[in-house]
């Protein structure tokens, strides 16, 4: 048997596959399987990029017409599986859409799900996934038993996306069957938050602020510093929940995973849920007035000091360098 046939739940934004999608396709290809992407939407614009990273085929539902992807794509997947093309493993990005599709499918197929994984290994017929727990200090290795397909979700940036030079993926239709009552939710309007500068999860420098900034207006220091370093501003959940900054800036378990060259944490304690989103940064600078703050445990340069004193001086020094 082996693990010969792997599906990847694919997502696209602005006419391109998301980085998370390409990461999983690359990994699936490295596992030596035939890789099929499964997309809720039209495959035309992205079949090239999917193929280039190793997908031989892409199933596409066509326009979802306002249906939420979870229930719609899961039903389309089930229809293909019932039709006889059944994969050994389906890999999902641990994103909103990924989670929803995987959840619906797990009930439809009566399969367990393994989530938040960062590694996968295949040995003959068995698939082992690795999941960090306790803020990433322990790694739990789990295997699937029971029937295939196995369903697993992976955290962003667990694998590197690398092209293999393949031609465009063959496109196959996977229409959404009638969803009945379960499909009754409908998107009526889409709002995209304006962002300028590099994207948080792709920037080479990320400057994040936390509750230690004291109040919302002080986040301006974070924005100024980020722009001086040509980086992106980030935040902890504490200040997102407090309404200081939008959720799109959140770094951590429930926010973005970042791996920049430099991560600056200002007024951030270093809760495990924040650290899982930034511990992979190449260099970490932390500024916190509490010498005992856990963030110092991962910092390459730690400054025990007051952000209201250190940040303005740092900004001034960088400005004067021009």
């Amino acid at each position: 048997m082996g693990i010969d046939n792997i599906w990847v739940f694919a997502q696209a934004a602005n006419g391109e596959p998301t980085t998370g999608t390409l990461e999983l396709i690359t990994k699936a290809r490295e596992l030596g399987a035939t890789v099929t992407a499964f997309l809720g939407g039209d495959a035309g614009p992205i079949a090239g990029a999917l193929g280039e990273h190793g997908a031989a085929k892409v199933y596409a539902t066509g326009d979802l017409g306002g249906s939420l992807p979870g229930v719609a794509v899961a039903a389309a997947m089930q229809a293909v599986i019932d039709g006889g093309d059944s994969p050994d493993l389906i890999m999902f990005p641990q994103s909103y859409e990924g989670r929803d599709v995987m959840s619906r499918l797990s009930v439809k197929l009566d399969r367990t799900v393994l989530t938040n994984s960062t590694e996968v290994a295949v040995d003959g017929d068995s698939v082992t996934v690795t999941t960090p727990v306790f803020g990433g200090t322990k790694l739990v290795n789990s295997t699937f038993s029971g029937e295939r397909p196995f369903l697993a979700a992976f955290r962003p940036k667990s694998f590197a996306a690398e092209p293999s030079g393949g031609g465009a993926a063959e496109v196959a239709d996977a229409p959404v069957p009638d969803l009945g009552a379960a499909g009754a939710a409908a998107v009526t309007a889409v709002h995209v938050e304006e962002t300028t500068g590099p994207k948080l999860d792709e920037a080479a420098v990320v400057v994040s602020g936390g509750r230690g900034l004291g109040e919302a207006t002080n986040f301006e220091m974070i924005e100024t510093l980020a722009s001086l370093l040509k980086g992106a501003p980030g935040a902890t959940r504490a200040i997102v929940d407090a309404g200081w900054v939008p959720y799109s800036l959140q770094v951590g378990q429930t926010g973005k995973v970042v791996k920049p060259t430099v991560y600056v944490a200002a007024g951030i304690s270093g809760a495990t849920q924040h650290m899982v989103g930034m511990k992979g940064s190449k260099n970490i600078i932390a500024i916190n007035k509490d010498a005992e703050a856990p963030i110092f445990g991962v910092a390459d340069l730690g400054i025990v000091g007051d952000v209201h004193k250190v940040l303005p001086k740092l900004i001034e020094a960088l400005q004067s360098r021009g």
Binding site: A13, S95, A184, A186, H191, E193
Partner: peptide, 9 residues
């Protein structure tokens, strides 16, 4: 991931 959607259900 990019903002928010209005959904009716």
């Amino acid at each position: 991931e990019a903002g928010y959607d209005e959904v009716s259900c």
